[in-house]
């Protein structure tokens, strides 16, 4: 008798979770975006930041070519990350017989995009005004906020990841000369580790 009700409670919890959260988010997508981010930051360092000291609190002189070059690196990294994340997650939804586009994924994406697009636009404006040094910090902080906002619709662990990214972002601002290192750590290492944890757990 008691066993039946314990099973019932399990079922209730599971149905409530599955009907409100998107649990097929692949941990491998975290690992792959982490690796891509590290590659992107290494490339940006070698081809851009190595020559001049751009990591300062004030605006720097940036010519058109420099801005285009930076944007190209950023856009390539972003597109590669999205492609990998979508690929691994679609693969996982197929395995689990879940649909990739449902109410939960829509909520997840919208809630992720609100802080992310806000931050992205702000960073673009700052880039055109030459405030390059504070961008690593700001991208980390807005990414963290986006994760926290989206965590209600997927694994609860995403909330902690968001808090860690915000913290690293604040450090990146305080120690601005090393902000590129903090950026590589936050978007690279931390994401890889978190991706592995999620991959193992679910």
């Amino acid at each position: 008798m008691k066993e039946k009700y314990i099973e019932d409670l399990k079922e209730i919890k599971e149905v409530m979770n599955r009907s409100t959260r998107f649990i097929s988010l692949s941990g491998l997508s975290g690992v792959s975006t982490g690796i891509i981010a590290m590659g992107g930051v290494l490339f940006a360092y070698l081809s851009f930041f190595k020559e001049k000291n751009y990591l300062v609190y004030h605006a720097v002189e940036l010519n058109k070519e420099a801005i285009i070059k930076l944007l190209m690196i950023a856009v390539t990294t972003l597109i590669l990350s999205i492609v990998c994340a979508v690929f691994f997650t679609t693969r996982k939804t197929k395995k689990g017989n879940q649909k990739i586009i449902n109410k939960q994924t829509k909520e997840l994406i919208i809630n992720l995009l609100i802080p992310l697009v806000t931050g992205g636009l702000l960073c673009l404006m700052l880039l055109f005004k030459g405030f390059l040094g504070i961008l690593p910090s700001l991208t980390l902080i807005f990414y963290g906020l986006a994760l926290i906002n989206a965590s209600k619709y997927t694994f609860a662990e995403l909330r902690n990841l968001g808090l860690i990214e915000i913290l690293i972002g604040l450090f990146a601002f305080q120690f601005i000369t090393y902000s590129l290192l903090f950026w590589a750590f936050g978007f690279g290492m931390v994401q890889i580790i978190y991706g592995m944890i999620i991959q193992r757990k679910y």
Partner: peptide, 23 residues
Amino acid sequence: RLGIMSALMVNEAVDFNSLKDLL
């Protein structure tokens, strides 16, 4: 029935096909 009710407790509304997939 327990599953249907659990889903409806945490969602405003759920359509027939989603319930079918879910359960």
